[in-house]
Amino acid sequence: MKPAPFSYHRPGSLSEALGLLSDLGADAKPLAGGQSLGPMLNMRLARPAHIVDLNDLLELDYVRRTGDGLEIGGMTRHHRLASAPEVRRTLPLLAEAASTIGHYAIRQRGTLGGSIVHADPAAQLPLVAVVLEAEAVIRSRAGERVAVVADFLQSIMTVDLADGELVTALRFPVPPTGTGWGFELFSRRRGDFAIASAAALIELAPSGAIAALRIAIGGAGAVPVRLDEIEHSAVGEFPDGMWCATVARCIAEAANPEEDPQIPVPFRRELLQTLAERALTAAHSRAAVA
């Protein structure tokens, strides 16, 4: 199918883009990689009167070290997230998750900002942003605000973003040295949206016991689910194979996925259990004693 008519705007700077978006209001949609908006326009699920193209805003395509974190521009493409040495070194979980998004050609275009704002419940980047406790930097003509990604993601394809606002960057705190990570997903065909996914981070105490656990699962609700109770009760435990299996079973039981005629709840629970166990095992094997 073909998109409904729109007028096209190509701002050359962020301030010009913010001005346009503020003037055009609800009739305008920013266009980043177009890998989600494109299909929605082609299928006429979206019919904005104005398209504001962000692709000339090279100032939003960057990876920058900021003290104890990494700030990544909203227009940074998935391929760069997956391959930039700085990301692979300091946030391997993010790089690995980005490398599994869609396909090679999709990753050349799709952006970090676009994925977070599109907020598909099965998407990789919202899941890892939640487990890494990232913040979104949001700009409008009126100024700048910062939102924790876990709060920014409100529901299926719904985020805390007003007309005229752009996500200009994500700020990722870099986990302490020695933190182990695991990322697992399941899809029926390589590159399809995941049916279920899990991301885990483990920090070990000198004794080898868990000092901190972070785990989140995707495909178990409208937004990525962080498992606070399981995280708290893990502290002080020794994460051997038995422990990983037991915790994974608890996670699957705690998960409350929606019924889907193609993916029955018990199937998704089983997937979550397997993926959580693998993610925990991988995180433990990569963790180094502090």
């Binding site: 096209y8 190509r10 266009l31 177009g34 890998q35 494109g38 391929h79 050349q108 275009r109």
Partner: peptide, 13 residues
């Protein structure tokens, strides 16, 4: 030089 879906790209871009 980078692969892109031409069906998800507008010529005007």
């Amino acid at each position: 030089g980078a692969p892109a879906r031409s069906c998800l790209t507008f010529a005007v871009q």
